[in-house]
Amino acid sequence: MQWRTIYRKEMLEYWRNFSWIWVPIVFIILAIMDPITSYYLPIIIDNVGGLPEGASVEIPEVNPTDALMMSLSEFSMFGVLVIIFITMGLIAGERKSGVAELILVKPVHYATYISSKWAAKLTLVLTSYIIGLFASWYYVNLLFGNIAFSALVQTIGFYGLWFVLVLTITVFFSCLFKSSGVVLGSTIGTLLLMFSIYNIFSHVLTWFPNSLSSHIREMLQTGSVPNALWGTSFITVGSSLILLIVAYVIFQKKEVA
């Protein structure tokens, strides 16, 4: 009951501050930009010119899998940044402005407060991401070749888990610190640390969350879901849940004290 009230209050806020319009648009633009640009690369090079007489540029053939992966790599950079920016104030901002106290003096459980806000933001992010990937799929089919609908659905399902983790990390730090800037810094720091750990130990850490996209590429190329992808998904979902629970415990201790 209370859970749904907070969830709906968040949804209303996303309508009022236009999040439901601009976040999906940003994800669509991110998703379709790279496939379109690489399709027109030969024409762009021709028109811009500046190449010496007789120079020839070999542009490698882009297959549908590569084109779809381009969208994912844009998501993993700018999509993740957008998610962090719109989420960093989720709880930190309300604690700073005092809204959190207003809600929590009522008999609202801390777990209800955190999980409903987390779920609301997740709804916004995942909806935008799914719309974006559908747009990318449309262009990839048009320009580069066929990707099966089932493969798209699998890609959406598995890559979405990465966004779940990123969002949960941001919410975690948002529970810890009052300043949005600190939340931003520690979230990006954590992601960079995970990225470098994965880069160094990628041959051992086949189930590390960062390996999701390379497993997804393998899935798109072979047409079957590799075992490592299930393992990675399990780790990603598991660590998100643990982070959320730890965030709740720390938040409760902080607020009660």
Binding site: I21, I25, I32, I36, L142
Partner: peptide, 23 residues
Amino acid sequence: NVFSLLAPLIILEAVLAIVALIA
């Protein structure tokens, strides 16, 4: 043709700018 491929992108850009103006 180039235009019908790029039209959605241009429209999205315009909507983004208009919504930002309203905000």
